[in-house]
């Protein structure tokens, strides 16, 4: 059952990204182009998603297990650190440069687009570099 709901969630997420305009890198860059001709659309994407998500998280915080009786993996509050700051800054540079963030890139890969495929391969490469740089747990 949980596998089915995971698939359904991914599908709805992907359709939402297409409808929202997030799969068009030019539109994403238009949102980040506040010094040029600014397209505020993606602010509404985040706003709409957060309004719904806020209900779910306030509900989840009062649950011990998920509605399908799975453990809840909600990150504990942690301190701000350099990894968070520099990681997020680097992500933003890549996001602005390519116009893709991870979700829309994967969705657009689903259309068979060669540029999306190159971006996704490089992104997986970047994640593998991160794994290689991690100290191994013994």
């Amino acid at each position: 059952m949980q596998l089915l709901t995971a698939f359904a969630s991914g599908l709805v997420f992907g359709v939402g990204l297409i409808l929202a305009g997030m799969t068009n890198p030019a539109k994403v860059q238009g949102f980040l182009d506040i010094f040029g001709a600014w397209d505020p659309s993606l602010g509404l994407v985040m706003g709409g998603a957060i309004v719904v998500g806020a209900f779910a998280f306030s509900r989840a915080k009062r649950l011990r297990r998920s509605l399908l009786d799975a453990p809840l993996y909600i990150p504990e509050p942690r301190r701000l650190d350099k990894r968070l700051l520099f990681g997020s800054l680097a992500f933003g540079v890549g996001w602005g440069l390519g116009g893709f963030c991870p979700g829309p890139a994967l969705v657009w890969l689903g259309t068979g687009d060669a540029k999306a495929a190159v971006f996704v391969l490089a992104m997986i490469g970047g994640m593998a570099i991160f794994e290689l740089l991690q100290p191994r747990a013994k």
Binding site: T5, S9, G48, A49, L67, Y73
Partner: peptide, 21 residues
């Protein structure tokens, strides 16, 4: 369209959280 897409993204994220944790 962007607001509707955002609502769908929120619904998808809520499903994964509340159903799968």
């Amino acid at each position: 369209a962007s607001l509707a897409g955002g609502l769908l993204i929120g619904i998808a994220a809520s499903m994964l959280l509340l159903l799968n944790g």
